[in-house]
Structure formats: structure tokens, C-alpha cells
Simulated assay, not measured.
Amino acid sequence: MTAQQLQIVRLAAKGLANWQIAERLLLSDRTIGFHLYQAFPKLGVTSRAQLRDALTRLEGA
């Protein structure tokens, strides 16, 4: 996972919407969606609700 994907996933796990993440990182909300689309399979998740647990596993390993 790229550093940018990880940063976006962390923000999404905190409950921020794509447009809010985009505003913070000065990217488009479509770009945020693309990065999340790429990151979900890498984390083994299918929804935003699963992101926090996946991050805990990833960063705890």
C-alpha cells in the first residue's frame, strides 16, 4: 500500500467523507474514491466500516 493510500484510509477510518478527505489533502473526491477502491482489497475489506479493524491489524503487525 502506498503512503498516500494509507493516509487516505486512516482519514476514512476516522469517519471523514471522500469530499472532506479531498479538501484536507488538496485532491479531488474522485481521486480519494480511486485510492480507497485500490486499498480495500489490499486490506481485505469490503466496506468503510471495516477499515478501523483492518488498520489495527496492519499497524499492529
Rank of each mutant, 00 (worst) to 15 (best):
L55F: 09
S28L: 05
T2N: 12
I8W: 00
M1W: 02
S47H: 11
A3Y: 03
Y37T: 12
K14R: 14
K42M: 11
I8R: 00
T56A: 15
D29R: 14
E59F: 06
Q38N: 07
G33C: 08
L58D: 05
A49P: 02
L27M: 14
L58C: 04
A13N: 08
R48W: 03
R52I: 12
Y37I: 04
R10E: 13
G15S: 03
P41N: 08
L11H: 03
L55V: 13
I32E: 02
I8K: 01
A12T: 01
A12N: 00
G33F: 07
L16G: 01
R57T: 10
E23R: 15
E59Y: 04
I32K: 05
M1T: 08
Q5R: 14
A22Q: 07
I21F: 00
H35V: 04
V45F: 07
N18A: 13
V45I: 09
Q7H: 13
A12K: 03
L55I: 12
M1G: 10
L58E: 08
L11S: 01
P41C: 04
L43V: 07
G33W: 05
S47A: 15
T56Q: 15
I32D: 03
T56G: 14
A54I: 10
I32R: 04
A61M: 09
I8D: 00
F40Q: 06
S28W: 02
K42N: 06
D29L: 03
L27K: 14
F40P: 01
Q38V: 07
F34I: 09
K14H: 09
L55S: 13
K14D: 13
R30N: 15
A61F: 05
A3C: 02
L43W: 06
T31I: 00
P41E: 05
A12R: 09
A22V: 05
L25W: 00
A12P: 01
Q5I: 04
T31K: 08
R48N: 10
S28E: 06
T56K: 15
A13E: 04
L36H: 02
R48Q: 09
V9P: 05
S28N: 09
R52N: 12
I21Q: 00
V9I: 12
D53V: 05
R48L: 10
A54Y: 12
R57H: 11
D53N: 14
L6R: 11
T2C: 01
L51H: 04
Q50E: 15
R10A: 11
K14F: 04
L43Y: 04
T56L: 15
F40S: 04
E23I: 01
A13K: 06
V45P: 07
R52D: 12
Q50P: 14
